[in-house]
Amino acid sequence: MLAWAGCLGYAAYYSGLDAVAGISAGAVAGNGVHGAVGWLFSTGDELGRAGVYALTLAALSAGSVLLRRHGVRELPGAVVVLGACWLFLDSHIFWPRGVFTMLAFAVGFGLLTVAASRWSGRLTNP
């Protein structure tokens, strides 16, 4: 349940970042109102930070469930995902750090999936 709450918080707050910092700041800057752009980016950063904290909560709780169900095989993936959450606090998606953060998420989630699948034997073809 905690993982779902974290996912919901991430979806809401990180979407808020995109709406405020991306859409609104772009619209205001295009109309020559440059003083408001900094305020919109600052508000967007706060929303994004709350979203990443929620994502971290979801990753922690989901990782702990996976560790209980499948054992220490899940530990490398969980550690990589949590590291990516930490990097995500200030990297968003921009080159170079943001790109490596997104790659770390992909690697971490891949490791979690492979470890859980290997444990249950789901990777074998029928």
Rank of each mutant, 00 (worst) to 15 (best):
A29P: 02
S91M: 03
T101F: 07
L55I: 10
P96M: 02
M1G: 07
V81A: 03
G44T: 00
N31R: 10
L60V: 15
A21Y: 08
L55N: 10
T101S: 12
G6K: 04
E46V: 13
A104P: 14
A11Q: 01
A50D: 06
G9M: 06
A21I: 00
W86Q: 15
H34C: 08
F41L: 09
G121E: 07
S15M: 14
S117Y: 00
R118G: 04
P96K: 05
G108P: 08
R49F: 15
W4A: 00
A116T: 04
W86R: 14
N31S: 11
L66E: 01
G38M: 05
S64D: 09
P76E: 10
A27W: 12
G98P: 03
A11T: 08
A58M: 06
A116M: 00
R69K: 08
L89W: 12
A104M: 10
I93V: 11
G98S: 05
H92G: 02
R68E: 15
A3L: 10
A116W: 00
G30E: 01
H92R: 14
R68I: 07
F100L: 13
H70Q: 06
V20Q: 04
Y10K: 03
L40M: 11
V33L: 03
T43C: 01
L67T: 06
A12R: 12
F94V: 03
L60M: 14
Y53K: 01
A104H: 12
S61T: 13
G6S: 06
R69S: 15
A27Q: 13
G32S: 01
G121C: 05
R118F: 10
A62M: 11
A106P: 04
G51V: 02
F109K: 01
P126G: 08
A84P: 05
W4Q: 01
G48Y: 10
V114M: 02
F109W: 13
Y53T: 03
N31I: 00
M102P: 10
S15N: 13
V65H: 04
A59V: 10
L75S: 14
E74S: 15
W39G: 11
E74A: 15
V99L: 07
R73F: 12
A104W: 05
L17S: 02
A116C: 03
Y14D: 00
A104V: 03
M102K: 00
G51T: 07
G110S: 13
R49W: 14
S117M: 03
G77Q: 13
N125I: 10
V99W: 07
V114R: 07
S15Y: 11
I93Y: 11
G32D: 01
G26H: 02
S117H: 08
S61H: 12
R69C: 11
